[in-house]
Design a binder for these strands. Structure first.
Lengths: 199, 199
DNA sequence: GCTACTTTAGCACGGTCGTTCGTGATTTTA
DNA sequence: TAAAATCACGAACGACCGTGCTAAAGTAGC
């Protein structure tokens, strides 16, 4: 591995960690350069623009996410079991990926919902793709008889994401110790594993 | 009404609108002063610090929220009907309050989840209080027999907020036209008005 | 060990940020 | 109408931002 690629990897590692802690807004060049132990301009030369750095950071975070959340579930039984594992791993993936803070994707969403541009587009596509993955898993669960045949898989996926988003808000901003339990309970209710009762 | 109070009100009106459009991060003094038609320093003199401006903006937004979402539901029948009206008004309250963008509270949450301070505290308290309101409404709905007696009202309130948060994300960032329908459907399922079936 | 190339440091730029201060204009009060 | 209190402006500050440029340091191939 060439020297340049090595420092680039170190930069991206620090960038994802920083984004996990302070969002993409905290992804400024000077503090990031300090973290890696080099100068602002030296770091800048690797990307050419701040936008390119953000995109590369997003890409690196995606690889981490795939490896931490999606890949380990491949061996799980298709249908609801696999979906449940992905959901559970999704809840705790920042810690499992060695990140010091919260999910960098959620942090990024909040900061780019108005500012149009390549970063926003990439981010939206990532979320759309993952929502599609959950829809397919739900459809598979229906085929396996884990969910009722009249399940609206799009609505189901939406509500699974809602539970995850609420967990991010509840654990992150609200700092509610009950957040994890609420997130699990919500999913179980969605999956019909609470005797089909209301919360 | 004195002159100072009038311009202060004008500033806060513009501030909430700006926060609705670009979040609290877009609440910079220069653009805000331009919007109101005065100088940065002239505007600044009304608050003394940016933090005080943010707190005042939060306060003003809270008054708007109370008047737009909570107050009109007072006349509704207690229990689930009142809760349903509040939820429905909550979904569309930025437009009903004359705001050009999205819910300023959700926008603020994302930007203050790491930065500790008075603004963060105030915001968290606002959310906690409103979650408490929803819990009480749910408890009332239980007493009226609108919800089953074994309902976990805290979990119920959490999931109602989850549906609202997901709507913010789905309509705002994802720009999904189906967002409103999803949010309504999710609430109906929570309230048990979909024949108790899963989505 | 010398050369060709890549990688990093150093410095400066234009711009925006929140904040301060003194002064003039404008209201409000007497 | 005169005096007093309030309000808004304009200029400037130090700090940080992203972005270029040039020169030095470091690395790799022969």
């Amino acid at each position: 591995m060439a020297k340049g690629a090595r420092t680039r990897a170190a930069i991206l590692k620090a960038a994802v960690e920083t984004a996990s802690l302070g969002g993409f807004a905290g992804l400024n060049l000077q503090p990031l350069a300090d973290r890696v132990g080099m100068t602002k301009s030296g770091l800048y030369a690797h990307f050419g623009s701040k936008e390119a750095l953000q995109l590369a950071t997003l890409e690196h975070a995606t690889e981490l996410f795939e490896a931490t959340v999606v890949a380990p579930a491949k061996t799980e039984a298709a249908g609801l079991p696999r979906l449940a594992v992905i959901y559970e791993r999704w809840l705790a993936w920042p810690a499992n990926a060695g990140l010091p803070g919260q999910c960098p994707f959620f942090a990024a969403v909040a900061e780019f919902d108005d500012a149009d541009g390549p970063v926003r587009e990439r981010l939206a596509r990532l979320f759309r793709d993952f929502q599609g993955v959950i829809e397919q898993l739900a459809a598979s669960a229906v085929r396996h008889g884990h969910l009722p045949p009249d399940t609206d898989v799009a609505q189901f996926a939406h509500e699974v994401l809602a539970m995850r988003y609420a967990h991010h808000w509840s654990a992150g901003f609200m700092r509610d110790p009950a957040a994890l339990g609420r997130a699990r309970r919500g999913f179980l209710r969605l999956a019909g594993r609470l005797g089909n009762q209301r919360p």
